[in-house]
Simulated scan of single mutants.
Amino acid sequence: MEMNFTKMHGLGNDFVVIDAVRQHVSLTPERVRFLAHRRTGVGCDQVLLVEPPADPQRAAFRYRIFNADGNEVEQCGNGARCFAVFVREAGLTEATVIPVETAAGIITLQVQGDGQVTVDMGPPRLEPWTIPFEAAAAAPTHTLQVGGETLEIGAVSMGNPHAVVVVEDVHKAPVERLGPLIERHPRFPRGANAGFMEVVSRERVRLRVFERGAGETLACGTGACAAVVSGQLQGLLDRQVAVDLPGGRLVIEWAGREDAPVLMTGPAQSVFTGRIQL
Rank of each mutant, 00 (worst) to 15 (best):
C225S: 15
V25T: 14
H142K: 12
G221Y: 04
A192V: 08
P123A: 15
T118Y: 03
A214W: 03
H142L: 07
N67V: 10
L236M: 15
P180S: 09
G195F: 06
R31F: 05
G10I: 11
V42C: 06
C220M: 11
A68Y: 02
G148Y: 11
N13E: 04
D169P: 00
A194R: 13
A139F: 01
S157A: 10
R64H: 03
L48K: 06
A163M: 07
P174D: 01
Q46N: 05
N4A: 14
V164G: 02
G179Q: 04
L233W: 08
T130H: 08
P99Q: 08
V175K: 08
S157P: 00
P246H: 11
I107M: 02
V209F: 05
R81F: 05
H37M: 03
P53R: 09
L27A: 09
I107W: 00
V119A: 10
P128F: 01
L233R: 15
N193Y: 08
F66R: 11
V228L: 07
S230F: 02
T96I: 14
A84T: 12
P140C: 04
I65E: 02
N193G: 08
V170I: 03
R187D: 14
N193W: 06
A138C: 00
P29T: 09
A137D: 09
M264E: 02
K7Q: 05
C44H: 07
G221T: 00
C76S: 13
A20Y: 02
T6C: 13
G215D: 02
R239S: 09
E74S: 14
C225T: 09
L11T: 11
R22P: 00
E74A: 15
E74K: 01
Q110E: 15
V32N: 09
V100N: 03
D14A: 08
Q116N: 15
R187H: 14
P56V: 06
L207E: 05
E203P: 00
W129D: 11
E72P: 01
G213F: 03
T28G: 10
H9Y: 05
W129K: 12
R125F: 02
C220A: 12
P56R: 11
N78D: 02
I18A: 03
I182N: 05
Q75I: 01
T108K: 10
Q145T: 10
R190K: 13
P174M: 06
G223K: 01
S230N: 04
